[in-house]
């Protein structure tokens, strides 16, 4: 397996996704076969090739330091799963 269970667990932790044992095995197999396919790329010589981030040739999209209205406080919180005193609330964060 290209991506073993340990790695699946590591990646799921990074991605904050719980997986059941069945899902872990399934993802291990699927990710492995997908990544094996992707190894196709290793046959391409990419020495001195610049990686593409954008297909565009434009540069410097900037805005002036000018205020635009914020949204109303109620709009900011209207979708909040849980709120209190005008703030979003989450289970206690322990430092």
């Amino acid at each position: 397996m290209k991506v073993d269970l340990r790695e699946v667990e590591h990646v799921s932790r990074l991605a904050r996704i719980y997986l059941t044992d069945t899902e872990k095995s399934k993802f291990s197999a699927e990710l492995s076969s997908i990544l094996e396919y992707m190894d196709l790329l290793s046959e391409v010589d990419t020495t001195d090739v610049t990686p593409t981030v954008h297909t565009l040739s434009i540069i410097n999209a900037l805005r002036h330091d000018a205020r635009k209205p914020s949204i109303p406080h109620d709009d900011a919180l209207q979708n909040a799963p849980s709120e209190s005193n005008g703030m979003f609330s989450v289970p206690k964060v322990i430092e």
Binding site: A66, K68, I71, L77
Partner: peptide, 27 residues
């Protein structure tokens, strides 16, 4: 000490009521 945030036009003011200087971008 800019007037507005780095990626949106909300004010950077300190000490305002919570979640009042916010917009879809900075949320």
């Amino acid at each position: 000490l800019t007037d507005t945030k780095i990626f949106c036009g909300c004010l950077t003011k300190f000490g305002d009521a919570p979640n009042t200087n916010v917009c879809p971008v900075c949320l």
